[in-house]
Design a protein around this nucleic acid. Structure first.
Length: 427
RNA sequence: GGAGACUUCGCCUAGUCUGGUCUAUGGCGCCGCACUGCUAAUGCGGUUGGGGUCUUAAAGCCCCUCCCGGGUUCGAAUCCCGGAGUCUCCGCCA
């Protein structure tokens, strides 16, 4: 959610920032409607407050008269004036519409974020070199040879888009998660294991609703009267956990992380270079999150990217860092940096982490604040989130980048103890 | 699943039966000031959150907020209906 006050005071700045990720004509139309609703809202409030004040005074006079032993007179409702109930209904409707319109507007991209879509993304850093591999086997083939993932039985259980890790494959997946958990704890993040079914309000706060309602799995109202949904990322849970709170300023930045599976509908079908575990309806991810003071946010963003990269580096994988354009980043974010790992079989880089700075956009939707030191004012915190990391993409990258001519795969050093071997060999 | 008790401005708490002087009591904590070799103790004052209005800003004024949503009433923390949560007991269950 954007700051209404900013729209009132500096509409032009808001409009030009939004134009980086929306059609300018549409921006102008949306802002017109919002300002009109805002105006209407405020004049209704003024009218209602005045009416309430009048009624309270009357009730006090009534009580006063009764105490003094006089016969109180009941004031007749003023003729020709809209009744309070009617005005309140009008205000409710106006506010609901204003909130709808406001919640549809995306965040303002940061100054260094350029307009445009995917084509405008910019690679800003590269780590390592693509390994020289003579005859590249892709991760689907490798994982079949090594017996790591059972796609057939996964589909039998969950339908298309599901898989089941098996044997040493399950150990490798779990080793990755445990490695990330240990590293995140070392980096000062508090480990959380949240519920996977969340209430609507958490989805709204994170910016998934109302726009992306179709992308998540909703639990049938018949079985869950409150209409929970399966979280699409732990970001939604961590943010939602602190809804309506005023955080202790001394404890900021507040750093937390969570492991959860992520459940996504992924409507729109599959892609030839997204076979195997690259895209599915359920995948494992460890998510890091920070609540910061506004002035700490950009440094925190850098820190989080560097931390996520250090995980990829410790695994010895070749990757690049991209700064996403305004159109390619999520609507709730001011700025997003992707970490993309090299996939030898496709000759492409695939996102394994997306580290984003949301400014106060999510905090405003979730009402997460801090108290100005010295002052009594509360202000919205800034929120940042990032994957650290998504295993379902690292898994294939490890197989492909560390494959040997005989089809075996060398396990990265930090995982060896956890997997119980330094090399996977074909069965 | 059943029965009961409960939810008050950071924490604890009075008030709810019997609607109005509740513009919410007291304590703890916290902040400021005074006093004091220092600390402690003591005294005085402040301390929910949101919105509107005015303003360069602050202050002021007004409205809402006693778990949430409705209702009754001139008037609701208090009465009625619905919902959420916490605790206790019973049942069921991995």
């Amino acid at each position: 959610m954007l700051d209404m006050e900013l729209i009132r005071k500096d509409r032009d700045a808001v409009a030009s920032a939004l134009a980086k990720r929306m059609d300018p004509a549409e921006v102008s139309r949306a802002l017109d409607e919002i300002q009109q609703l805002d105006q209407q809202r405020r004049s209704l409030i003024t009218e209602i407050d005045g009416e309430r004040q009048r009624r309270k005074a009357e009730a006090r006079a009534y009580a006063e008269a009764k105490r003094a032993g006089r016969e109180p007179e009941v004031a007749a409702p003023e003729a020709g004036r809209k009744g309070l109930t009617e005005l309140e209904a009008e205000l409710d409707e106006t506010q609901a519409r204003l909130r709808d319109r406001m919640s549809e507007l995306p965040n303002l991209p940061a100054d260094d974020v350029v307009p445009g879509g995917k084509e405008a993304n910019r690679v800003v850093k590269t780590f390592g070199e693509p390994p020289a591999i003579e005859k590249v086997r892709d991760h689907v083939e490798l994982s079949r040879m090594l017996g790591l993932v059972d796609h057939e039985r996964g589909v039998k259980l969950g339908g298309s888009g599901f898989w089941m890790y098996t044997g040493v494959g399950a150990r490798l997946e779990w080793a990755l998660l445990n490695f990330f958990i240990d590293e995140n704890v070392k980096a000062g993040y508090e480990f959380l294991l949240p519920p996977h079914l969340l209430l609507e309000s958490a989805g709204f706060a994170a910016g998934q609703f109302p726009k992306f309602t179709e992308d998540v799995y909703h639990v049938d109202r018949a079985s869950a009267p409150r209409g929970q949904f399966l979280l699409p990322t732990a970001e939604t849970a961590i943010l939602g956990a602190f809804q309506d709170e005023i955080l202790d300023t001394a404890k900021l930045p507040l750093k937390a992380f969570a492991y959860t599976p992520c459940y996504r509908r992924e409507a729109g079908g599959s892609h030839s270079d997204e076979r195997g575990t690259v895209r599915g309806h359920q995948f494992n991810k460890v998510e890091i999150f920070q609540f910061t003071l506004p002035e700490q946010a950009e440094a925190a963003h850098e820190e989080m990217v560097a931390h996520a990269e250090s995980l990829v580096e410790k695994l010895g994988l070749h990757y690049q860092r991209s700064l996403l354009s305004a159109g390619d980043a999520s609507a709730a974010m001011k700025k997003t940096l992707d970490i993309e790992v090299w996939m030898p079989s496709t000759g492409k880089y695939k996102e394994v982490s997306s580290v984003s700075w949301a400014g106060d956009y999510q905090a405003r939707r979730a009402a997460i604040r801090y108290r100005e030191p010295g002052g009594k004012q509360t202000r919205f915190v800034h929120t940042l989130n990032g994957s650290a990391l998504a295993t379902s993409r690292l898994f294939p990258a490890i197989l492909e980048q560390f494959q040997q001519p005989d089809g075996s795969v060398v396990i990265p050093e930090p995982l060896q103890n956890r997997v119980g071997t330094d090399r996977l060999t074909p069965r």
